[in-house]
Design a protein around this nucleic acid. Structure first.
Lengths: 190, 190
DNA sequence: GTCTATAAATAGATAGAC
DNA sequence: GTCTATCTATTTATAGAC
Protein backbone atom coordinates (compact mmCIF):
# COMPACT_ATOMS: atom_id res chain seq x y z
CA UNK A 1 0.00 0.00 0.00
CA UNK A 2 1.78 3.15 -1.22
CA UNK A 3 1.33 5.86 1.32
CA UNK A 4 -0.85 8.77 0.33
CA UNK A 5 0.75 12.09 -0.52
CA UNK A 6 -0.28 15.19 1.43
CA UNK A 7 -1.89 16.62 -1.69
CA UNK A 8 -3.94 13.52 -2.28
CA UNK A 9 -4.97 13.57 1.35
CA UNK A 10 -6.03 17.20 1.17
CA UNK A 11 -8.09 16.47 -1.93
CA UNK A 12 -9.84 13.49 -0.36
CA UNK A 13 -10.55 15.47 2.75
CA UNK A 14 -11.94 18.42 0.81
CA UNK A 15 -14.09 16.13 -1.33
CA UNK A 16 -15.47 14.44 1.77
CA UNK A 17 -16.47 17.65 3.50
CA UNK A 18 -18.00 19.18 0.40
CA UNK A 19 -19.76 15.97 -0.59
CA UNK A 20 -21.34 15.56 2.84
CA UNK A 21 -22.83 19.03 2.67
CA UNK A 22 -23.68 19.50 -0.98
CA UNK A 23 -23.95 15.95 -2.25
CA UNK A 24 -21.67 14.49 -4.85
CA UNK A 25 -23.29 15.86 -7.96
CA UNK A 26 -23.60 19.17 -6.13
CA UNK A 27 -19.84 19.27 -5.65
CA UNK A 28 -17.62 20.46 -8.48
CA UNK A 29 -13.99 19.60 -9.06
CA UNK A 30 -13.32 23.32 -9.02
CA UNK A 31 -14.64 23.55 -5.45
CA UNK A 32 -12.66 20.51 -4.37
CA UNK A 33 -9.48 22.06 -5.74
CA UNK A 34 -10.14 25.37 -4.06
CA UNK A 35 -10.88 23.82 -0.68
CA UNK A 36 -7.86 21.56 -0.89
CA UNK A 37 -5.73 24.58 -1.71
CA UNK A 38 -4.53 23.25 -5.06
CA UNK A 39 -5.29 23.86 -8.72
CA UNK A 40 -7.81 21.82 -10.63
CA UNK A 41 -5.04 20.33 -12.73
CA UNK A 42 -3.54 18.82 -9.57
CA UNK A 43 -6.81 17.20 -8.68
CA UNK A 44 -6.85 15.49 -12.07
CA UNK A 45 -3.20 14.56 -11.67
CA UNK A 46 -4.15 12.59 -8.56
CA UNK A 47 -7.54 11.27 -9.63
CA UNK A 48 -8.30 10.50 -13.23
CA UNK A 49 -11.93 11.56 -12.88
CA UNK A 50 -14.53 12.83 -10.46
CA UNK A 51 -16.05 9.36 -10.35
CA UNK A 52 -12.74 7.79 -9.34
CA UNK A 53 -12.27 10.35 -6.60
CA UNK A 54 -15.61 9.68 -4.95
CA UNK A 55 -15.39 5.99 -5.59
CA UNK A 56 -12.23 5.86 -3.50
CA UNK A 57 -13.92 7.80 -0.73
CA UNK A 58 -17.02 5.63 -0.69
CA UNK A 59 -15.43 2.24 -1.06
CA UNK A 60 -12.96 2.81 1.74
CA UNK A 61 -15.83 4.09 3.87
CA UNK A 62 -18.14 1.17 3.28
CA UNK A 63 -15.24 -1.21 3.55
CA UNK A 64 -14.39 0.17 7.01
CA UNK A 65 -18.01 -0.34 7.98
CA UNK A 66 -17.99 -3.96 6.84
CA UNK A 67 -14.76 -4.56 8.72
CA UNK A 68 -16.18 -2.97 11.88
CA UNK A 69 -19.26 -5.17 11.70
CA UNK A 70 -17.17 -8.26 11.16
CA UNK A 71 -15.06 -7.57 14.23
CA UNK A 72 -18.08 -6.71 16.35
CA UNK A 73 -19.77 -9.94 15.36
CA UNK A 74 -16.78 -12.00 16.40
CA UNK A 75 -16.47 -10.19 19.71
CA UNK A 76 -19.61 -11.71 21.16
CA UNK A 77 -22.07 -14.56 20.79
CA UNK A 78 -25.83 -14.81 20.40
CA UNK A 79 -27.87 -11.64 20.65
CA UNK A 80 -24.92 -9.87 22.24
CA UNK A 81 -23.25 -10.00 18.83
CA UNK A 82 -26.15 -8.02 17.36
CA UNK A 83 -25.90 -5.54 20.22
CA UNK A 84 -22.19 -5.10 19.59
CA UNK A 85 -22.75 -4.59 15.86
CA UNK A 86 -25.40 -1.93 16.38
CA UNK A 87 -23.36 -0.09 18.97
CA UNK A 88 -20.11 -0.20 17.02
CA UNK A 89 -21.83 0.91 13.85
CA UNK A 90 -23.31 3.89 15.67
CA UNK A 91 -19.93 4.73 17.15
CA UNK A 92 -18.40 4.63 13.70
CA UNK A 93 -21.12 6.92 12.39
CA UNK A 94 -20.48 9.35 15.23
CA UNK A 95 -16.75 9.35 14.65
CA UNK A 96 -17.06 10.07 11.00
CA UNK A 97 -20.21 12.04 10.51
CA UNK A 98 -19.30 13.47 7.14
CA UNK A 99 -18.60 10.06 5.73
CA UNK A 100 -21.77 8.64 7.25
CA UNK A 101 -23.86 11.35 5.63
CA UNK A 102 -22.18 10.83 2.30
CA UNK A 103 -22.64 7.08 2.43
CA UNK A 104 -26.25 7.30 3.49
CA UNK A 105 -27.10 9.50 0.55
CA UNK A 106 -25.48 7.09 -1.89
CA UNK A 107 -26.17 3.68 -0.45
CA UNK A 108 -29.60 3.33 -2.05
CA UNK A 109 -28.52 4.56 -5.45
CA UNK A 110 -28.14 2.26 -8.39
CA UNK A 111 -27.24 4.83 -11.00
CA UNK A 112 -23.69 5.67 -10.19
CA UNK A 113 -20.36 4.69 -11.65
CA UNK A 114 -19.29 3.23 -8.34
CA UNK A 115 -22.58 1.48 -7.62
CA UNK A 116 -21.11 -1.98 -8.05
CA UNK A 117 -18.34 -1.48 -5.53
CA UNK A 118 -20.65 0.19 -3.00
CA UNK A 119 -23.48 -2.31 -3.44
CA UNK A 120 -21.10 -5.23 -3.06
CA UNK A 121 -19.80 -3.86 0.20
CA UNK A 122 -23.30 -3.02 1.40
CA UNK A 123 -24.28 -6.63 0.87
CA UNK A 124 -21.16 -7.74 2.65
CA UNK A 125 -22.13 -5.62 5.64
CA UNK A 126 -25.66 -6.95 5.63
CA UNK A 127 -24.62 -10.55 5.29
CA UNK A 128 -22.28 -10.05 8.23
CA UNK A 129 -25.40 -9.23 10.24
CA UNK A 130 -27.13 -12.18 8.60
CA UNK A 131 -24.41 -14.47 9.89
CA UNK A 132 -24.92 -13.22 13.41
CA UNK A 133 -28.64 -13.85 13.02
CA UNK A 134 -28.27 -17.47 11.97
CA UNK A 135 -28.24 -18.96 15.48
CA UNK A 136 -31.05 -16.65 16.59
CA UNK A 137 -33.76 -17.56 14.10
CA UNK A 138 -35.71 -20.79 13.64
CA UNK A 139 -33.77 -23.38 11.66
CA UNK A 140 -36.46 -23.33 8.98
CA UNK A 141 -35.94 -19.65 8.20
CA UNK A 142 -35.08 -19.12 4.54
CA UNK A 143 -31.90 -17.40 3.49
CA UNK A 144 -33.79 -14.47 1.88
CA UNK A 145 -35.84 -13.97 5.04
CA UNK A 146 -32.72 -13.85 7.14
CA UNK A 147 -31.20 -11.29 4.82
CA UNK A 148 -34.36 -9.25 4.99
CA UNK A 149 -34.07 -9.22 8.77
CA UNK A 150 -30.41 -8.29 8.51
CA UNK A 151 -31.28 -5.50 6.09
CA UNK A 152 -33.87 -4.28 8.54
CA UNK A 153 -31.40 -4.16 11.41
CA UNK A 154 -28.89 -2.40 9.19
CA UNK A 155 -31.53 0.09 8.05
CA UNK A 156 -32.72 0.73 11.58
CA UNK A 157 -29.20 1.48 12.74
CA UNK A 158 -28.40 3.69 9.78
CA UNK A 159 -31.64 5.65 9.92
CA UNK A 160 -31.41 5.92 13.69
CA UNK A 161 -27.85 7.17 13.33
CA UNK A 162 -28.87 9.77 10.79
CA UNK A 163 -31.83 10.87 12.86
CA UNK A 164 -29.39 11.29 15.71
CA UNK A 165 -26.84 13.34 13.76
CA UNK A 166 -29.43 15.55 12.17
CA UNK A 167 -31.89 16.16 14.97
CA UNK A 168 -30.44 15.35 18.37
CA UNK A 169 -26.65 15.44 17.99
CA UNK A 170 -26.14 16.19 21.66
CA UNK A 171 -27.50 12.78 22.65
CA UNK A 172 -24.95 10.29 23.96
CA UNK A 173 -24.10 7.29 21.79
CA UNK A 174 -25.13 4.95 24.61
CA UNK A 175 -28.62 6.41 24.66
CA UNK A 176 -28.97 6.12 20.90
CA UNK A 177 -27.74 2.59 20.97
CA UNK A 178 -30.14 1.77 23.81
CA UNK A 179 -33.07 3.22 21.89
CA UNK A 180 -32.37 1.23 18.74
CA UNK A 181 -31.75 -1.98 20.68
CA UNK A 182 -34.92 -1.46 22.68
CA UNK A 183 -36.93 -2.01 19.50
CA UNK A 184 -35.28 -5.41 19.10
CA UNK A 185 -35.68 -6.42 22.74
CA UNK A 186 -39.28 -7.52 22.42
CA UNK A 187 -40.44 -5.09 25.05
CA UNK A 188 -42.51 -3.24 22.45
CA UNK A 189 -44.54 -6.34 21.72
CA UNK A 190 -44.84 -7.41 25.34
CA UNK B 1 -57.58 20.68 -7.05
CA UNK B 2 -57.47 21.29 -10.80
CA UNK B 3 -57.36 17.99 -12.56
CA UNK B 4 -54.13 17.08 -14.26
CA UNK B 5 -53.93 17.26 -18.04
CA UNK B 6 -52.94 14.15 -19.97
CA UNK B 7 -49.71 15.85 -21.00
CA UNK B 8 -48.79 16.67 -17.44
CA UNK B 9 -49.59 13.12 -16.45
CA UNK B 10 -47.39 11.70 -19.20
CA UNK B 11 -44.54 13.97 -18.12
CA UNK B 12 -44.82 12.98 -14.46
CA UNK B 13 -44.98 9.33 -15.39
CA UNK B 14 -41.96 9.56 -17.67
CA UNK B 15 -39.98 11.46 -15.03
CA UNK B 16 -40.84 8.84 -12.42
CA UNK B 17 -39.72 5.91 -14.52
CA UNK B 18 -36.52 7.57 -15.67
CA UNK B 19 -35.72 8.91 -12.22
CA UNK B 20 -36.10 5.52 -10.60
CA UNK B 21 -33.63 3.97 -13.01
CA UNK B 22 -31.10 6.70 -13.63
CA UNK B 23 -31.51 8.92 -10.59
CA UNK B 24 -32.69 12.47 -10.74
CA UNK B 25 -29.48 14.17 -11.73
CA UNK B 26 -28.94 11.35 -14.20
CA UNK B 27 -32.21 12.19 -15.90
CA UNK B 28 -32.36 15.05 -18.39
CA UNK B 29 -35.38 17.08 -19.36
CA UNK B 30 -34.69 16.02 -22.94
CA UNK B 31 -35.17 12.37 -21.96
CA UNK B 32 -38.29 13.15 -20.00
CA UNK B 33 -39.77 14.93 -23.02
CA UNK B 34 -38.89 12.11 -25.37
CA UNK B 35 -40.32 9.42 -23.13
CA UNK B 36 -43.48 11.41 -22.54
CA UNK B 37 -43.84 11.85 -26.27
CA UNK B 38 -43.78 15.64 -26.19
CA UNK B 39 -41.28 18.38 -26.97
CA UNK B 40 -39.03 19.84 -24.35
CA UNK B 41 -40.84 23.15 -24.59
CA UNK B 42 -44.00 21.43 -23.43
CA UNK B 43 -42.26 20.06 -20.39
CA UNK B 44 -41.27 23.58 -19.41
CA UNK B 45 -44.76 24.82 -20.16
CA UNK B 46 -46.08 22.43 -17.51
CA UNK B 47 -43.25 22.64 -15.01
CA UNK B 48 -41.24 25.78 -14.53
CA UNK B 49 -38.06 23.86 -13.80
CA UNK B 50 -36.59 20.41 -13.37
CA UNK B 51 -36.55 20.93 -9.62
CA UNK B 52 -40.27 21.71 -9.56
CA UNK B 53 -41.03 18.65 -11.60
CA UNK B 54 -39.27 16.26 -9.25
CA UNK B 55 -40.40 18.13 -6.20
CA UNK B 56 -43.99 17.45 -7.17
CA UNK B 57 -43.23 13.79 -7.68
CA UNK B 58 -41.43 13.41 -4.37
CA UNK B 59 -43.73 15.42 -2.18
CA UNK B 60 -46.86 13.64 -3.34
CA UNK B 61 -45.02 10.35 -2.83
CA UNK B 62 -43.87 11.06 0.69
CA UNK B 63 -47.20 12.61 1.49
CA UNK B 64 -49.00 9.43 0.44
CA UNK B 65 -46.65 7.50 2.70
CA UNK B 66 -47.39 9.71 5.67
CA UNK B 67 -51.10 9.38 5.03
CA UNK B 68 -50.83 5.59 4.78
CA UNK B 69 -48.97 5.43 8.08
CA UNK B 70 -51.51 7.64 9.74
CA UNK B 71 -54.40 5.45 8.67
CA UNK B 72 -52.58 2.26 9.63
CA UNK B 73 -51.87 3.63 13.08
CA UNK B 74 -55.50 4.42 13.67
CA UNK B 75 -56.64 1.01 12.47
CA UNK B 76 -55.24 -0.83 15.46
CA UNK B 77 -54.03 -0.40 19.01
CA UNK B 78 -50.86 -1.25 20.87
CA UNK B 79 -48.19 -3.24 19.08
CA UNK B 80 -50.74 -4.20 16.43
CA UNK B 81 -50.57 -0.60 15.25
CA UNK B 82 -46.85 -0.98 14.61
CA UNK B 83 -47.51 -4.21 12.76
CA UNK B 84 -50.12 -2.53 10.60
CA UNK B 85 -47.79 0.37 9.81
CA UNK B 86 -44.94 -1.88 8.76
CA UNK B 87 -47.15 -4.06 6.63
CA UNK B 88 -48.98 -1.20 4.95
CA UNK B 89 -45.74 0.63 4.24
CA UNK B 90 -44.32 -2.48 2.59
CA UNK B 91 -47.48 -2.89 0.56
CA UNK B 92 -47.22 0.69 -0.59
CA UNK B 93 -43.60 0.14 -1.58
CA UNK B 94 -44.57 -2.94 -3.54
CA UNK B 95 -47.39 -1.16 -5.32
CA UNK B 96 -45.22 1.70 -6.39
CA UNK B 97 -41.74 0.38 -6.77
CA UNK B 98 -40.45 3.14 -8.98
CA UNK B 99 -41.56 5.79 -6.52
CA UNK B 100 -40.12 3.83 -3.61
CA UNK B 101 -36.73 3.61 -5.29
CA UNK B 102 -36.78 7.29 -6.13
CA UNK B 103 -37.76 8.28 -2.61
CA UNK B 104 -35.18 6.02 -0.99
CA UNK B 105 -32.39 7.58 -3.01
CA UNK B 106 -33.45 11.07 -2.01
CA UNK B 107 -34.71 10.73 1.52
CA UNK B 108 -31.29 11.08 3.12
CA UNK B 109 -30.22 14.01 1.04
CA UNK B 110 -30.02 17.48 2.41
CA UNK B 111 -28.67 19.23 -0.65
CA UNK B 112 -31.67 19.47 -2.89
CA UNK B 113 -34.08 22.19 -3.74
CA UNK B 114 -36.96 20.12 -2.44
CA UNK B 115 -35.18 18.97 0.72
CA UNK B 116 -37.37 21.04 2.99
CA UNK B 117 -40.61 19.60 1.71
CA UNK B 118 -39.31 16.05 1.69
CA UNK B 119 -37.66 16.31 5.09
CA UNK B 120 -40.78 17.76 6.63
CA UNK B 121 -42.85 14.89 5.36
CA UNK B 122 -40.23 12.36 6.41
CA UNK B 123 -40.43 13.70 9.93
CA UNK B 124 -44.19 13.57 9.76
CA UNK B 125 -44.02 9.91 8.82
CA UNK B 126 -41.56 9.14 11.59
CA UNK B 127 -43.50 11.01 14.22
CA UNK B 128 -46.60 9.07 13.19
CA UNK B 129 -44.67 5.96 14.21
CA UNK B 130 -43.52 7.79 17.33
CA UNK B 131 -47.14 8.36 18.29
CA UNK B 132 -47.87 4.66 17.98
CA UNK B 133 -44.86 3.94 20.17
CA UNK B 134 -45.94 6.20 23.00
CA UNK B 135 -48.07 3.63 24.84
CA UNK B 136 -45.46 0.92 24.27
CA UNK B 137 -42.42 2.46 25.89
CA UNK B 138 -41.71 3.29 29.56
CA UNK B 139 -43.29 6.55 30.62
CA UNK B 140 -39.85 7.95 31.40
CA UNK B 141 -38.67 7.59 27.79
CA UNK B 142 -37.54 10.92 26.37
CA UNK B 143 -39.08 12.36 23.25
CA UNK B 144 -35.78 12.15 21.29
CA UNK B 145 -35.36 8.52 22.29
CA UNK B 146 -38.85 7.71 21.10
CA UNK B 147 -38.15 9.41 17.80
CA UNK B 148 -34.91 7.48 17.46
CA UNK B 149 -36.87 4.26 17.91
CA UNK B 150 -39.44 5.43 15.39
CA UNK B 151 -36.66 6.33 12.97
CA UNK B 152 -35.24 2.87 13.45
CA UNK B 153 -38.52 1.17 12.66
CA UNK B 154 -38.97 3.40 9.63
CA UNK B 155 -35.43 2.64 8.47
CA UNK B 156 -35.83 -1.06 9.00
CA UNK B 157 -38.99 -1.13 6.92
CA UNK B 158 -37.54 1.01 4.16
CA UNK B 159 -34.27 -0.88 3.93
CA UNK B 160 -36.08 -4.21 4.18
CA UNK B 161 -38.41 -3.09 1.42
CA UNK B 162 -35.54 -2.08 -0.81
CA UNK B 163 -33.66 -5.29 -0.10
CA UNK B 164 -36.82 -7.06 -1.14
CA UNK B 165 -37.32 -5.16 -4.39
CA UNK B 166 -33.70 -5.41 -5.43
CA UNK B 167 -32.73 -8.91 -4.40
CA UNK B 168 -35.76 -11.11 -3.81
CA UNK B 169 -38.66 -9.50 -5.66
CA UNK B 170 -40.51 -12.83 -5.98
CA UNK B 171 -41.00 -13.01 -2.21
CA UNK B 172 -44.54 -12.45 -0.97
CA UNK B 173 -45.31 -9.25 0.93
CA UNK B 174 -46.52 -11.30 3.90
CA UNK B 175 -43.17 -13.03 4.20
CA UNK B 176 -41.28 -9.75 4.01
CA UNK B 177 -43.54 -8.22 6.57
CA UNK B 178 -43.13 -11.26 8.83
CA UNK B 179 -39.35 -11.06 8.57
CA UNK B 180 -39.20 -7.40 9.53
CA UNK B 181 -41.67 -7.82 12.35
CA UNK B 182 -39.81 -10.82 13.65
CA UNK B 183 -36.90 -8.55 14.53
CA UNK B 184 -39.26 -6.48 16.71
CA UNK B 185 -40.91 -9.47 18.34
CA UNK B 186 -38.18 -10.06 20.90
CA UNK B 187 -37.58 -13.60 19.71
CA UNK B 188 -34.08 -12.66 18.60
CA UNK B 189 -33.15 -11.68 22.13
CA UNK B 190 -34.90 -14.62 23.76
C1' DG C 1 -50.65 24.37 -25.74
C1' DT C 2 -47.13 22.51 -28.44
C1' DC C 3 -43.43 22.89 -31.37
C1' DT C 4 -38.29 24.08 -33.16
C1' DA C 5 -34.28 26.47 -32.57
C1' DT C 6 -31.12 28.63 -29.74
C1' DA C 7 -29.18 30.98 -25.87
C1' DA C 8 -26.41 30.79 -21.72
C1' DA C 9 -24.09 28.69 -18.29
C1' DT C 10 -21.91 25.02 -16.09
C1' DA C 11 -18.53 21.71 -15.23
C1' DG C 12 -15.63 17.68 -16.48
C1' DA C 13 -11.47 17.05 -18.58
C1' DT C 14 -6.96 18.12 -21.18
C1' DA C 15 -2.61 20.67 -22.99
C1' DG C 16 1.40 22.41 -22.17
C1' DA C 17 4.44 25.75 -19.56
C1' DC C 18 7.22 25.84 -15.42
C1' DG D 1 4.00 17.59 -9.46
C1' DT D 2 1.64 21.74 -9.87
C1' DC D 3 0.05 25.50 -12.30
C1' DT D 4 -2.95 28.45 -15.86
C1' DA D 5 -5.60 28.56 -19.75
C1' DT D 6 -8.73 26.42 -22.66
C1' DC D 7 -11.62 23.03 -24.97
C1' DT D 8 -15.78 20.66 -25.38
C1' DA D 9 -19.88 18.51 -24.22
C1' DT D 10 -23.84 18.67 -21.74
C1' DT D 11 -27.99 20.48 -20.19
C1' DT D 12 -31.12 23.78 -18.14
C1' DA D 13 -33.99 27.13 -19.70
C1' DT D 14 -36.07 30.63 -23.01
C1' DA D 15 -37.88 32.93 -27.46
C1' DG D 16 -40.96 33.02 -30.67
C1' DA D 17 -43.50 30.71 -34.62
C1' DC D 18 -47.64 27.98 -35.39
Amino acid sequence: MPRISPTKMAILSAALELGAVNGISGTTMEQVAERAGVAKGSVYYNFSSKDKLFEELLTTGVSTLAETLSQARQSAAGFAAIEAMVTDMLTLIAENRALAKLMASEIFRTDRAWQDAVQTLRREAISEIGTALAPLVPAATSEPSRLLMAGGIFGATLMGGLEWLLFSPETDVAEVSAAILYTFSGKLAA
